[in-house]
Nucleic acid binder design. Structure first.
Lengths: 224, 224
DNA sequence: GTTTGTATGAGTGGATACAAAAATCCAATG
DNA sequence: CATTGGATTTTTGTATCCACTCATACAAAC
């Protein structure tokens, strides 16, 4: 009955943590769909614990925006409307724009080479399906905003990436291989090389804002 | 023993909600200081419930960044280091900058008049102590970013205001009456009147970034 | 006098038990 | 046949209990 612990659950120090990681990875890969109701008891049985830690995991997921929690009527998987996807990308654009600006001092031959490497890896993973590509794409962005050295900023951006991940998958599955993406990210690296922080910030903003309409086109009819 | 329900607790529909609001308002007004340990049992007794809902409230406070929660070693009030205050203001600057830009279409004679009114109210509350002034100041900002019509953005900004509120208090208590603040906010309204979204965004960014060093000066020696 | 070991107690995490609220079902009524 | 009212079932929310962890204090050894 109980599944063997999935890779994400291995380093959980408490039951709540285990439940949280379990649900997060299930949501990320789209095992639960928006609108699905999550029953504490079911999940608890699945991973061999009582409902209590699962409830607490729900709360964390709710503040991540991955589920919605209403008093006395349980926990449902949160989907994003087209408007909400748009809003999320607006927020991402300014936060990652800020991150790039702050990361500029860290840009040098080494870091730029690493970025080219990540971009190649992303490109090559295009054949291996949406799962792989989306992960590599997030890695690329994460490397950049990671260089900002701002823990809170990094956390917030990561949280946003988590929320939009399922929609990125859907999108990628439709277009099979976003050729434009390669060029987009090349431009980004070019801007980083320029050394002009304000310019890099602007390019990042536009890069992110430009992605939103593409996603909405495919993700919107899927739900709501 | 149990205190009469403070104003913030009136509309709580669950015990968890009541605990959350209770702790939030206690933290906002600085009743607990950074580093203080919060013992579930004590809090539970204070407001007449068991530890369980209090524990769940802790988790929400933790994801708001108001407390820190470590496995098996409880809940401590989170303070911000000077660096963290700075980072928070950096994030605020781009988020509120975005909000202003998006709010521009809503600016008209009515909304601008309302803003002047809020500014006057803030000005006049300067005598009534830091409590009052900080609330009015947040109201002023909230009105602007509220006009953006972006729910998620509004939530994120509000969360940041919550975290820095105690530091704003400390700062205000020291300087008694920030004369420059009046001018700063006048400038802001002026930029809104200009109708130039990009300019308004830039002014808001600078307004917020300019505040951070003032706070750090006074808030930093207080803790850490 | 410093360090290491051990006992004790407070505090945390989780499971079970219990209470309250919603959802569901079914019958009675218009 | 749709609608409403109420009883039953399901699910959520809270309380209590137990097991385990960690911190502190004291004691023994070096």
């Amino acid at each position: 009955m109980a599944l063997s612990p999935s890779p994400a659950d291995l380093k959980a120090s408490t039951a709540e943590e285990e439940a949280y990681l379990h649900l997060q990875s299930a949501l990320r890969c789209g095992r639960y769909k928006p609108g699905d109701r999550l029953i504490p008891e079911e999940i608890a049985n699945e991973i061999g614990m009582s409902r209590m830690p699962v409830r607490e995991a729900f709360r964390r997921l709710a503040s991540d925006g991955l589920v919605t929690l209403r008093p006395n009527r349980g926990c449902v998987v949160a989907g994003l409307t087209a408007d909400e996807i748009c809003e999320t990308f607006e927020i991402r654009s300014v936060l990652e724009g800020l991150a790039v600006r702050l990361a500029m001092p860290q840009m040098n031959a080494d870091t730029l080479e690493e970025l080219e490497l990540l971009l190649d890896r992303m490109e090559r993973s295009g054949q291996s399906g949406s799962n792989e590509w989306v992960s590599r794409h997030q890695e690329f962005h994460a490397y950049i905003y990671g260089l900002s050295g701002r823990p809170k900023l990094i956390r917030q951006i990561s949280a946003l990436h988590l929320v939009i991940e399922p929609y990125m998958r859907i999108w990628f599955d439709f277009v099979t291989k976003p050729l434009s993406a390669r060029q987009e990210h090349e431009n980004l690296i070019e801007a980083l090389k320029s050394g002009d922080a304000a310019h890099a910030e602007a390019v990042m903003r536009e890069h992110i804002l430009g992605t939103a309409p593409l996603l909405i086109e495919y993700a919107s009819p899927a739900r709501r």
